[in-house]
Nucleic acid binder design. Structure first.
Lengths: 240, 240
DNA sequence: GAGTGGTCTAGACCACGAA
DNA sequence: TCGTGGTCTAGACCACTCG
């Protein structure tokens, strides 16, 4: 484990426990290098990470300050969909899906383009829903290039495809390009999700890349609007 | 301008122009230190930035590779709402709003909590829509603490509040915590936006922080689902 | 002017991937 | 085994904030 990650954990703990209060100034960078017996670069790396997690603001010439964050948002996961707590917890423990479709197809041009495939390429196509207490809580549409994954099993689609890939292929997912939209549920999706006609859904279109730059996964996931949200932190504002 | 930013621009240019093709390996980090006459740290900083922009993948022990990115997504702005191109371009040049409401209020508990205010605090409250060719294209609900901004003008709400703040207060916005949701447009919003009853909207709730850790802005913006999307890149996947 | 964070250097060691 | 990127050091200079 890298040193800077340990220090991140330590300081994050201080903030969560309240040893560091909102608006408190952290020790100066130089002080921290001494306290942790590391170099300046390492501390800057730590500050980068704490900033990314939304815990501190850095003011050049002045200091690093603990953000006054609404405490409710403290433990919400970032950069992913969160559902209600009980559902999230349950899914993490026992991922379970009902698979509506599992085939090999020639994907349409949109998907082909996303995955950087040729016209004559094939992909696995999976349509499925995660379950919580017997109820579908999302609808997912997934494409995997046959060129990369020659064999994907139905049983993996019923639990975790990513786990199957980890165990059977020597590839490393690296990053994900996401597009979020609000859409109206189709009739079929309303049935599956047990929601009224015309309900709004939060759609996440996600293209996954391996660490050698190849796209390996195209995913469209749709979640009922009233049970889902997506949280993120960055330095870009909507135009105001 | 920091050196690493120049190098980022240079390499990004190479990728956009096609001098570096998808799946190409970049020169090794050591080679780049020589080519640009900088130290290793600087190059790593450059790679951090290129990775954040979704242009490259880094494979420890192997190399840095140009991602095969769907070219359409190349120039879309990240970490913000994008509308259709003509609207985006127009808004950037001539931001213009119709203000539906402009008052000072005691905000409800939710906003008070987001902004870290006391029960007896007041905020400016602004409700407005951006216009494109006379048509409203969003609805925004904004709160600004009177404690921080004693004076906000109606005219600023009709163009750019952030510009007004820049020019009249010595504060520096630092980061934004966002929550995205899909919601159904209210009757009033349908009227304002000229969309059918029950249309889905993409909602962005955004809390802005200053560089000293203070929240300074609470914004809820809602966009018609069929004209808006939000793009982002990170290393976190939805559960698959 | 004194103190802060941001960037940068030159060099080192390590973990990992590929052959 | 060897070349790759990831992390780290000790020290430096600079831009910025604030009294």
């Amino acid at each position: 484990m890298a040193k800077y990650k340990d220090i991140v954990k330590d300081i994050e703990g201080c903030i969560r426990r309240g040893d560091l209060q909102p608006y408190d100034q952290l020790p100066t960078v130089v002080e921290m290098t001494k306290a942790y017996h590391v170099s300046r670069t390492t501390i800057e790396q730590v500050m980068d990470e704490l900033e990314k997690r939304g815990l501190v603001s850095r003011k050049r010439g002045s200091g690093v300050y603990v953000k006054k964050v609404a405490t409710q948002s403290f433990d919400k996961p970032l950069n992913t969909i969160s559902l209600t707590d009980d559902i999230d917890a349950n899914l993490a423990k026992h991922p379970s899906c009902t698979v509506h479709e599992f085939t090999v197809v020639k994907p349409d041009e949109h998907v082909r383009h996303e995955l950087g495939l040729h016209e004559f390429s094939f992909t696995f196509y999976i349509e499925r829903s995660h379950l919580h207490e017997g109820q579908a809580i999302d609808v997912q549409y997934l494409y995997y290039p046959v060129e990369i994954f020659r064999d994907i099993r139905l049983t993996s689609a019923e639990t975790s495809i990513r786990q199957w890939i980890d165990e059977n292929y020597d590839v490393t997912p690296d990053s994900f390009h996401k597009t979020l939209r609000a859409v109206t549920a189709s009739e079929r999706e309303c049935e599956i999700l047990g929601i009224p006609e015309g309900s709004p859904l939060l759609e996440v279109e996600q293209i996954g890349y391996l660490d050698d730059g190849r796209p390996f996964e195209s995913l469209v996931a749709r979640f009922p609007g009233d049970r889902s949200e997506y949280q993120t932190i960055d330095s870009d504002s909507l135009p105001v």
